[in-house]
């Protein structure tokens, strides 16, 4: 699922934790308008009277230069330019550096219902923040029914059928000092080509259902250090009932991948059976994943060592 448009009002209360410091100064009637993909425009050329290729459907950012230019315009020229500017169906204007537009601009923005904001951020900083926020809002999203836990700093997505013990495993991990992000409903966004971020659904954040106990609030029971709101997904672990005929990975030399939103994430299958301590296996898998990220592959290294040893032994025999 991919969002194509957002309402302008979403900019003020967006899902990411970045505060754009936006204060609405005019055009309140237009905050329900939609904007599509996150491009922006600096309207300097338009203000100078050149309206060819005017990208009116983007977010218009007025920096210090634009405001200074507008200030020195002669009143009649200013009226003409502003009328022209607003004759296009401009979606939204944002003034940086806490510079407030003049009365005429505000009046026209109100009349044309163009939401106009002022932000205290500097222009470059603001544009980079805004781009970040828009990228996050417009990023492809999928909902996964697994459980996301931060284990030693590695985002581990536990998957498996209902009743296989994902929640119980997450609970044990939390008890051992790791952090729960979301249980049973993980929103996954592809922020860019190399980053999958997992979030909990806002309403049920940090709650878990444990069969026999009912719903528990992990944050209240285990404290603030037991939870976090989002985490990059770096490892997918499928828990499944031990099937006696199935071959499980015994070496770990080959790396399996699980595809989420067309991105490949390292993937392991862990068979579950009574008496197997799954949380400690997950912890080890997370640590092993960290090692791999640093270029250390336990299985491959052992194999290299054995091959080297055998080669040396072989040589000794020949000598």
């Amino acid at each position: 699922m991919e969002k194509r448009t957002i309402h302008i009002r979403d900019l003020t209360g967006n899902e990411s934790k970045i505060d754009l410091h936006l204060v609405l100064v005019a055009g309140k009637a237009g905050v329900g308008k939609e904007i599509s993909m996150g491009d922006i425009n600096r309207p300097g050329l338009g203000l100078a009277g050149f309206f060819d290729f005017f990208a009116y459907d983007r977010i218009q950012i007025f920096g210090l230069g634009e405001t200074a230019f507008m200030r020195q315009l002669a009143p009649d020229r200013k009226g003409e330019i502003f009328e022209r500017f607003f004759s296009y169906s401009v979606r939204c204007c944002i003034f940086t550096h806490n510079e407030h537009p003049d009365e005429l601009f505000l009046e026209l923005a109100n009349r044309h219902q163009v939401p106009t904001f002022v932000t205290t951020h500097r222009t470059t900083r603001f544009i980079s923040l805004l781009t970040h926020v828009l990228e996050e809002i417009f990023s492809p999203m999928v909902v996964n029914h697994g459980t996301l836990v931060d284990v030693f700093g590695v985002g581990v997505l536990l998957m498996g059928k209902s009743g296989v013990g994902k929640s119980e495993c997450a609970l044990e991990l939390v008890e051992r000092g790791h952090r729960l992000v979301a249980d049973d409903m993980v929103e996954i966004r592809k922020i860019d080509e190399s980053l999958l971020m997992g979030y909990g659904s806002e309403v049920i954040r940090h709650h878990m259902e444990i069969r026999g106990l009912g719903i528990i609030n992990v944050k209240d029971v285990f404290g603030i250090r037991s939870v976090r709101n989002r985490k990059r997904i770096e490892l997918v672990v499928l828990l499944e009932e031990w099937a006696s005929g199935k071959e499980y990975d015994r070496l770990g030399i080959d790396e399996n991948k699980y595809s989420i939103l067309d991105m490949d994430v390292p993937f392991i299958t862990v068979p579950v059976r009574p008496g197997r301590n799954i949380p400690i296996i997950i912890e080890t898998a997370a640590l092993n994943q960290r090692l791999k990220k640093m270029g250390v592959y336990s299985a491959r290294e052992l194999d290299n060592r054995i091959q080297h040893w055998m080669m040396m032994e072989g040589r000794k025999r020949h000598d």
């Binding site: 699922m1 909902v143 029914h145 209902s162 249980d183 049973d184 409903m185 659904s201 309403v203 049920i204 709650h207 878990m208 259902e209 719903i215």
Partner: peptide, 17 residues
């Protein structure tokens, strides 16, 4: 709204609000 919840999980159903 295109968000699919697991109908056998209480948390998932509640999460749809």
């Amino acid at each position: 709204d295109d968000v699919e919840a697991n109908g056998k999980s209480i948390m998932s159903v509640l999460g749809l609000a």
